[in-house]
Write a protein that binds this DNA or RNA. Sequence first.
RNA 1: GGCGACGUAGCCAAGUGGCAAGGCAGAGGUCUGCAAAACCUCCAUCCCCAGUUCGAUUCUGGGCGUCGCCU
Length: 306
Amino acid sequence: MAGADAALPAKLLTRVPVIVGPTGIGKSRLAFELAVRLGGEIVVADSRQVYERLDIATNKPSPEMRGRVRYHMIDFVDPSLNFNAAQYVRGATAAIDDIAARGRVPIVEGGTMLYVDALSDGFTLTGIPPNAALRSELEQLDIAALRSRLLAVDPDPGVDLDNPVRVIRALEILDVAGPPLRRLRTRTPPQWQPVRIGLTASLEVIDSRLDERSRRQVERGLVDETQQALDAGVPPTAAVLTGIGYAEALAHLRGELSLEELPAAMARSNRRYARRQLRWWRRDGRVRWFEIEPDPLPGILRYLDE
RNA sequence: GGCGACGUAGCCAAGUGGCAAGGCAGAGGUCUGCAAAACCUCCAUCCCCAGUUCGAUUCUGGGCGUCGCCU
């Protein structure tokens, strides 16, 4: 965080707590408590909580929490649509400005690694929308063909050439913006100072919390919620329904997974995701880590005061 | 008790007389930006014993086990 501070004294920048960590560790609860203490509002950085109605497996804050603290960037996108990181950064940036302008404390909390970093580091994202026709054409090609097609347009695109999703996206962007791809990827730090706070615990603790949460989500009516979304016309391929919990609930509705097996399958997906999140933020030296036991809140408040 | 089939990694599963596909799960990693996605790396000497053979997971015999059918 040193570089950005040189131009503006740190104290003049609004310090924004950014709560990160693996799924199921209680980030949401902590952000809530922090908001209550600080007179804050929460900007959720989560690629699934943005969608309307699908509440259970997206782990949206409870109605009680939402009654006491104002939340932003949740529950406002038609679940049939696909929301993306560029839209997120635009919306979240506006929300933070708005919160700060009203003299309140913005608190970012989230699990979607790219969203958190894109917002906090000010990634310039093109926001170029998916081109269905181009995609269906490109999806016919194997990775070697995709790769050579990309390299023909841009010899040094800076994307993983083994990864079809990335290569297709690169071609999609180049189709609109033209080469070179690298010039489109800049960073403009936000007008506020992120204070990254990581919540962590042992893998055993995380895993057992995920087991428990998955079981409760099924009890709370995850399958019904999924069925209702389908009945409302949300296609099974919609982004929300490919998320953890909904993907497994759909498998159950298709008869591929019994109700008894459902929580375990969900917990497994969650475990993988949690590990990926830990790896992502572990390598970010700007994150200050706090164990969830004992209550990390006092230490975090002290840290924010430094 | 008889007949038949099978016995390959945590699970599913291919395969061959010459040093054992793949998928899932697991572990580790990537990320200049569609990210709860995608990608990369790692991960077995084939139930046991004896025999045939230069060489057996693959062939033969005997165990043990599982499944099915029959009595």
